[in-house]
Design a protein around this nucleic acid. Structure first.
Length: 267
DNA sequence: AGAATTACCTGAGCGC
DNA sequence: TGCGCTCAGGTAATTC
């Protein structure tokens, strides 16, 4: 589920509602995630104030007055801000009860998410340190892609889904960006010329920008604020008509992930 | 070094 | 209705 736009939309919607609030109590219901939720959170967090929310790739960072709570939503995770008395449901993993009586609640059925506490700088934590440039940073451009692609022998789709190449791109936006760029997902990344790398970087930014403008694609603070999912051009539409040429969209697998593309528009 | 494979989980949807 | 199978938005550890 959550790729960059979903995590960023969560951050943008949640931040103004929780900034400056004090954490009163932590409730851990289902500690089992990709990494177990640290039990110490129940003692470490109460009394701390939420100072700002940041995002790095698909990680959400809750900076407190001292230390940082790092959350990854995995495949199926989402966060809601609820009234204190909202009844917990299955797969609600943990709650941060805030000083205004609201609860930040993490829900993740498939349990691929991560919650961890970092005392120092979360950006140098092992899980975040190796992440590539943010798609909206100046460092992410065609020339950068050319230089990294030179050493790689993989498909362009796997390449842009590699978090060490660029942050925040998962299966959905990889499919969408390649469609927008007119590049076949199964092309070897080394075969892209400079013009195509420029176009790819621009297309990645464009699909993310459109999704952010629409409020992303998923249950992002949905119950609190409503949401209007973006329409995908190719993802989930195999066998249907290409929105550009009307031809039939084709499904394939790339690195064991489902891939959809238009064989007429993408070369 | 980099690519491919495996593993971690639950739930929805499909064919029989 | 129910069973078994496949697939689903992520990614790190392991193997080759």
């Amino acid at each position: 589920m959550p790729e960059l736009p979903e995590v960023e939309t969560t951050r943008r919607r949640l931040e103004p509602l929780v900034l400056g609030k004090r954490i009163v109590r932590v409730t851990i219901r289902v500690p089992k995630l990709r990494l177990p939720i640290p039990q110490e959170l129940t003692e470490l967090l109460p009394g701390r104030t939420l100072e700002r929310l940041e995002r790095r790739g698909k990680y959400l960072l809750f900076f407190c007055d001292k230390g940082c709570l790092v959350v990854h939503l995995g495949m199926t995770g989402f966060i809601r801000l609820l009234p204190q008395d909202a009844r917990p449901e299955p797969h609600d993993h943990f709650d941060l009860l805030l000083s205004d009586g609201k609860v930040i609640r993490l829900h993740d059925p498939r349990r691929f998410g991560i919650v961890l506490w970092v005392d120092g700088d979360p950006y140098s934590h092992q899980l975040l340190a190796g992440i590539g440039p943010e798609p909206f940073s100046e460092a992410f451009n065609g020339a950068y892609l050319v230089s990294v692609a030179r050493r790689r022998k993989t498909t362009v789709k796997q390449f842009i889904m590699d978090a060490t190449v660029v942050a925040g791109i998962g299966n959905i936006y990889a499919n969408e960006a390649l469609f927008l760029a007119g590049i076949r997902p199964d092309r070897l990344v080394g075969s892209l010329d400079a013009r195509e790398c420029d176009l790819l970087a621009e297309s990645v930014r464009e699909v993310l920008t459109r999704s952010l403008a629409a409020g992303s694609s998923w249950r992002v603070m949905a119950e609190t604020l409503g949401y209007y999912p973006v329409q995908f051009k190719v993802y989930g539409r195999s066998g249907k008509g290409c929105p550009v040429c009307g031809g039939v969209l084709e499904a394939s697998r790339t690195g064991n992930r489902s891939t959809v593309f238009c064989p007429r528009c993408q070369h």
